[in-house]
């Protein structure tokens, strides 16, 4: 229906989606701050869980190695340091990720 696309007809769907896309493109900048919002407590939870998770995994790996290879306490010691380093790395990455938009190489929609 509506082949002749008269003036009284509602605008066609194609035209509408074009206008919609234009309007969307226009406020693309307005959408950016959404990634940043979220309470301070949320941020604190995020960062502390990153640090904690790194440490827990490091300790578990080191401890497991000790149990298997009988190298106690060196595995655990190495694991604590590695885990702490990994936790700090996680926190640094998380800080970078919350500060701005996702990594630039993820944006290439070809």
């Amino acid at each position: 229906m509506a082949d002749d696309a008269g003036k009284q007809q509602p605008p066609s769907l194609d035209e509408f989606s074009k206008r919609l896309a234009a309007a969307r493109g226009g406020d693309a900048n307005a959408k950016e701050p959404r990634a940043k919002d979220g309470s301070g407590m949320g941020r604190a939870f995020r960062l502390s869980s990153e640090l904690l998770a790194g440490l827990i995994v490091g300790v578990l790996l080191g401890w497991g190695l000790d149990r298997l290879a009988g190298t106690s306490p060196w595995g655990l010691l190495a694991g604590i340091f590695l885990g702490f380093a990994a936790g700090v790395l996680n926190v640094a990455r998380a800080m970078k990720a919350t500060g701005n938009a996702p990594p630039a190489d993820g944006r290439n929609d070809d």
């Binding site: 869980s49 990153e50 998770a53 995994v57 990994a86």
Partner: peptide, 20 residues
């Protein structure tokens, strides 16, 4: 360090949601 960091991902994901 990257390996431990990778292994810690599931843990930090789960700790965050559960702790909140």
């Amino acid at each position: 360090i990257e390996f431990v960091s990778f292994l810690s991902r599931p843990l930090s994901l789960s700790i965050r949601l559960f702790a909140n």
